[in-house]
């Protein structure tokens, strides 16, 4: 099987299972984001792929070949660290040329390759500068160029953009994606920033407590979260308890949601609905009755907090255009369109 395969990979530190029985296939040329809260095991998993940590159990395969025992320096995976790990005593050019120097590449060729890489990351002519004189974004680009110097089999990035300010980060996300598409290198980025993942990835792998919760394209993750953890972690969502009535219809807080059915054999769970999918009506109809407790008008969007009873508050997000004049204290009817509802388990 071509591409990277993780088979039942497990890593424990003492009693702590950092990575718990992870199995995953990443096809060649894919751009994968490993997403999850801190401590979920995503960085440990990346380090195992790089060979910097040894799996406690399981195997890591490349194109069907087990590389678990291969030491890091023989894997030819380029890696960008969160700290960037630029060598402080070397210039930009020397940093990028370091892997070439180890391979014994001729001086002329080294120089040419460095020029090419610097052009690629849009830092032409920076070869002679000391790395201490660079800005954060420039350091980022140097680290990327260095990791790509040997045309690696895999391109690994551990929280690469976390040190940059928000604006620069967004620009770099786009740039990184374009660079990857240009080179076609299989890329794995570890991040805790879902926006970053949504922007760049072909495949998002959501991790929690050392396990893969869902691995799917970004929009599917967003639209069809596999469980409550994913639904809650990706974007914001409303989670409401749901159960079946005798007739197989889904009942939320005592009200039947028309058109929504629970999967066969499931009698209760949670229904996840994105705030932008929640509809509010001031006309009393079949929806959930509720009372508006707070309105947050952000200009572009308006968030409306609705108390639907049972200690549950729903959030609905609308644009001003879509929404009538609903003020705090108003009685409203909340409509949950069945096609936007996803039934998940805890």
């Amino acid at each position: 099987m071509s591409g990277l395969s993780l088979e039942n990979v497990t890593k424990t530190f003492g009693d702590f299972r950092a990575v718990d029985d992870v199995t995953l296939h990443i096809p060649n040329g894919a751009f994968v984001c490993m997403l999850g809260p801190s401590g979920c095991g995503k960085t440990t998993l990346l380090r195992m792929i790089a060979g910097l940590e040894e799996p406690t159990a399981g195997a890591i395969m490349i194109d069907g070949k087990d590389i678990t025992p291969v030491p890091t320096h023989k894997r030819n995976f380029g890696m960008v660290f969160q700290s960037l790990a630029l060598f402080p005593h070397l210039t930009v050019g020397e940093n990028i040329a370091y892997p070439l120097r180890i391979r014994g590449v001729a001086q002329d060729e080294q120089r040419k390759r460095v020029e090419d890489l610097l052009a690629l990351v849009q830092l032409p002519g920076y070869a002679g500068r000391p790395v201490s004189k660079l800005s954060g974004g420039q350091r980022q680009r140097v680290a990327i160029a260095r990791a790509l110097a040997l045309s690696p089999r895999l391109f690994l990035l551990d929280e690469p953009l976390s040190a940059l300010d928000a604006k620069l980060r967004e620009a770099m996300q786009v740039e990184l994606r374009q660079l990857q598409q240009k080179l076609g290198v299989t890329t794995i980025v570890v991040t805790h920033d879902q926006r970053e993942a949504m922007t760049m990835a072909d495949l998002v792998v959501v991790m929690g407590n050392g396990r893969i919760r869902q691995a799917a394209p970004p929009i599917e993750i967003y639209r069809r979260p596999a469980d409550a953890f994913v639904a809650d972690f990706i974007g914001s969502t409303n989670l409401l308890p749901v159960e079946t009535d005798g007739g197989g219809r889904a009942v939320v807080l005592g009200h039947v949601v028309p058109g929504l059915a629970l999967p066969a054999g499931v009698t209760k769970g949670l229904v996840s609905i994105r705030p932008e999918d929640v509809q509010l009506s001031q006309v009393a109809d079949s929806g959930l009755p509720g009372r508006v407790t707070f309105v947050r008008d952000l200009g572009g969007t308006i968030e409306t907090f609705v108390d639907v009873g049972g200690g549950t508050t729903l959030v609905a997000v609308t644009t001003p255009r879509q929404r009538g004049d609903i003020a705090a204290g108003a009685e409203v009817s909340v409509i949950l369109p069945a096609e936007s509802c996803v039934v998940v388990q805890e």
Partner: peptide, 13 residues
């Protein structure tokens, strides 16, 4: 990570 970076770049420890 300095040494780890060197290792990923092909240097033995």
């Amino acid at each position: 990570t300095l040494l780890e970076a060197a290792r990923t770049l092909g240097a033995s420890p």
